[in-house]
Design a protein around this nucleic acid. Structure first.
Length: 335
DNA sequence: CGGAGAATAT
DNA sequence: TATATTCTCC
């Protein structure tokens, strides 16, 4: 969005601004910032941190901040100054059992670069802050082990947002053409390695195989459940490569006594399909975590945000392409 | 020789 | 179980 703003107001000055302001919804047409987006019942039911109550003062400060930013000046009201965190940047991350709960606010991860850089992937903007930051954490945190190049990156946790991205990419590529390297590249997630993807892909395929033919099982709340792909704040899935995970190649002969559907646990916490929040998700993998903007769903050390994999690609684009993902802002020469 | 995918390890 | 690592084969 910043981009949009800059594009519009960028080359302009005050006059221009007045100009483009014409046509914009007026006050009465806009949803008041003070309006609660997530009903109390839901925040309670899903342990969501309720949105802070915004006062008029908050709104005004936010406006001023925005204006000043557009004018290229300093932000007189650092976000933290008020409870108005429009863009909570980072959130706690949790790695497997150790729950490293750090609030990384710095964009970069200076720490391990050298030794780990090999695997560092592209980074760049991406409002996919969540996915991004969580992985970034994977690289940085553990200040202890990166000392002598013997660092081991913490095991990756496939959080729903991350998995979602994964599935979107796989889906777009077509399950048959989706291979680790390509997936990794298209996902464009910093720190994600081919190995990470390969491993997950193996599991994903297993999942698809097991569910061949069968429609979404109502009891399938696993991370792999299609429900997790449904409406997620950021947008909908392009109809393109279809969202149905498996075109199911040759119907496997085997389909014995219907083995139990693969269920994944999520830190032992049976996550509910938070469809109401546009977060289909069930129990699933372990925690990992991430944080992003907007309301976060609270799971054990877990936060969700808007996951705009592609505000450009996804959205009403027929043949969605992952162009932008293919052109990471950061050179993608690594690996 | 890199990489995909399966097998195995943790 | 979920993810990582190793092993095979292409």
């Amino acid at each position: 969005m910043d981009e949009d703003i800059e594009m519009i107001g960028g080359g302009g000055n005050d006059e221009r601004m007045l100009e483009w302001e014409n046509g914009l919804p007026n006050e009465s047409e806009l949803t008041p910032l003070s309006q609660i987006l997530v009903p109390p019942e839901l925040t309670l039911a899903f342990s969501i941190t309720p949105e802070p109550c915004r006062s008029m003062g908050d709104v005004i400060r936010a406006s001023e901040r925005t204006i000043l930013r557009l004018c290229g000046r300093q932000d007189p009201f650092p976000c933290s100054s008020s409870n108005l965190e429009l863009f909570p940047s980072r959130l706690p991350l949790v790695y497997g059992e150790e729950d490293v709960q750090e609030h990384e606010l710095t964009p970069r991860t200076p720490a391990m670069d050298d030794t780990e850089s090999r695997k560092i992937q592209k980074n760049d903007y991406n409002e996919d802050v969540e996915v991004d930051s969580s992985l970034r954490m994977l690289n940085s945190s553990n200040a202890d082990n990166q000392s002598a190049g013997t660092s081991k990156r913490p095991r990756l946790v496939w959080t729903p947002p991350l998995h979602k991205r994964f599935v979107e990419v796989v889906t777009h590529l077509g399950v048959k053409n989706a291979v680790p390297k390509t997936i990794m590249q298209l996902m464009n997630v910093e720190g994600l390695t081919r190995e990470n993807v390969a491993s997950h892909l193996q599991k994903y395929r297993l999942y698809l195989k097991r569910n061949q033919g069968e429609g979404p099982s109502t009891s399938d709340n696993s991370l792999f459940s299609p429900s997790i792909l449904k409406s997620t704040g950021s947008g909908r899935m392009p109809p393109s490569t279809t969202q149905a995970p498996a075109p199911a190649p040759p119907a496997q002969l085997e389909q014995p006594p219907t083995p139990p559907l693969p269920q994944m646990s999520y830190g032992g916490v049976p996550l509910l399909p938070i469809s109401a929040l546009g977060m289909g998700l069930g129990q699933n993998d372990q925690v990992g975590v991430k944080a992003g903007n907007s309301a976060g769903v609270g799971y054990p050390g877990y936060k969700f945000h808007h996951y705009n994999i592609s505000k450009d690609q996804q959205r009403d684009r027929p043949g969605i392409t992952f162009d932008s993902m293919l052109h990471p802002h950061v050179s993608n020469t690594d690996r």
